[in-house]
Amino acid sequence: MMRNFGCVQCGTRSNPCRCKVVGPTLGLVAAAAAAVVEWPVGAVVYIFRHMKGRRIMGHPARVVYPSVSRAIPI
């Protein structure tokens, strides 16, 4: 049984086929790589500054994934 390990985002107007696969998949990989670094740092910062720690831990999902996903229109 084959599984599709890519992210698919359909209904976009950024390309002729109106379906994105590469951008969201690379966005997910980039967000996961950023999370490996930022979540432990955010956890340590959270001990002293709660809101700043939460912002650091949320950065991969709020900033990294959308920016990479939008940058690649395929």
Rank of each mutant, 00 (worst) to 15 (best):
residue 70 R to C: 04
residue 35 A to W: 11
residue 61 A to V: 09
residue 50 H to D: 02
residue 59 H to A: 09
residue 26 L to H: 04
residue 60 P to G: 03
residue 36 V to P: 07
residue 32 A to D: 09
residue 54 R to P: 06
residue 57 M to D: 07
residue 55 R to G: 11
residue 58 G to H: 13
residue 72 I to D: 14
residue 40 P to L: 12
residue 48 F to G: 07
residue 40 P to K: 09
residue 20 K to R: 13
residue 27 G to T: 00
residue 66 P to G: 01
residue 50 H to K: 05
residue 68 V to M: 00
residue 74 I to K: 13
residue 42 G to W: 03
residue 49 R to V: 12
residue 24 P to L: 01
residue 61 A to F: 12
residue 74 I to G: 13
residue 57 M to I: 10
residue 62 R to I: 07
residue 30 A to E: 00
residue 68 V to H: 01
residue 51 M to C: 11
residue 74 I to A: 12
residue 72 I to F: 08
residue 46 Y to R: 07
residue 22 V to S: 14
residue 71 A to D: 00
residue 21 V to N: 15
residue 36 V to M: 12
residue 56 I to P: 08
residue 37 V to Y: 15
residue 57 M to F: 12
residue 44 V to D: 15
residue 60 P to Y: 01
residue 53 G to R: 05
residue 58 G to R: 08
residue 41 V to H: 09
residue 59 H to G: 07
residue 30 A to Y: 02
residue 57 M to K: 06
residue 59 H to R: 12
residue 46 Y to W: 10
residue 23 G to S: 04
residue 62 R to M: 12
residue 50 H to P: 06
residue 47 I to R: 04
residue 20 K to F: 15
residue 65 Y to G: 04
residue 29 V to Y: 04
residue 58 G to P: 11
residue 51 M to V: 08
residue 23 G to Y: 04
residue 63 V to I: 11
residue 65 Y to C: 05
residue 43 A to L: 15
residue 55 R to V: 11
residue 41 V to Y: 14
residue 28 L to S: 08
residue 60 P to H: 03
residue 40 P to D: 12
residue 58 G to L: 14
residue 19 C to R: 15
residue 26 L to W: 04
residue 69 S to Q: 01
residue 29 V to I: 05
residue 65 Y to I: 03
residue 73 P to H: 14
residue 38 E to S: 06
residue 69 S to H: 02
residue 67 S to M: 01
residue 44 V to Q: 12
residue 50 H to W: 13
residue 67 S to D: 03
residue 40 P to T: 10
residue 33 A to I: 06
residue 37 V to M: 12
residue 45 V to C: 10
residue 70 R to E: 01
residue 28 L to N: 14
residue 63 V to T: 13
residue 73 P to I: 08
residue 50 H to R: 02
residue 47 I to G: 11
residue 48 F to R: 02
residue 60 P to K: 03
residue 47 I to T: 06
residue 31 A to V: 05
residue 30 A to I: 03
residue 67 S to F: 00
residue 65 Y to S: 04
residue 55 R to K: 12
residue 38 E to K: 06
residue 30 A to F: 01
residue 56 I to K: 09
residue 33 A to S: 08
residue 25 T to D: 07
residue 48 F to Q: 00
residue 60 P to L: 03
residue 23 G to T: 02
residue 36 V to G: 10
residue 49 R to W: 10
residue 60 P to T: 03
residue 35 A to F: 07
residue 67 S to C: 02
residue 19 C to Q: 15
residue 50 H to A: 01
residue 29 V to M: 04
residue 35 A to H: 07
residue 27 G to D: 01
residue 69 S to G: 03
residue 44 V to S: 08
residue 66 P to V: 00
residue 36 V to T: 07
residue 55 R to S: 10
residue 74 I to P: 11
residue 27 G to M: 00
residue 19 C to H: 15
residue 74 I to E: 14
residue 61 A to N: 10
residue 34 A to E: 08
residue 60 P to I: 02
residue 66 P to N: 01
residue 42 G to S: 10
residue 64 V to R: 04
residue 35 A to P: 07
residue 56 I to W: 14
residue 27 G to S: 00
residue 70 R to G: 02
residue 45 V to Y: 11
residue 59 H to C: 09
residue 31 A to C: 04
residue 27 G to A: 00
residue 57 M to E: 06
residue 35 A to Y: 09
residue 71 A to R: 01
residue 29 V to S: 06
residue 33 A to F: 05
residue 48 F to V: 05
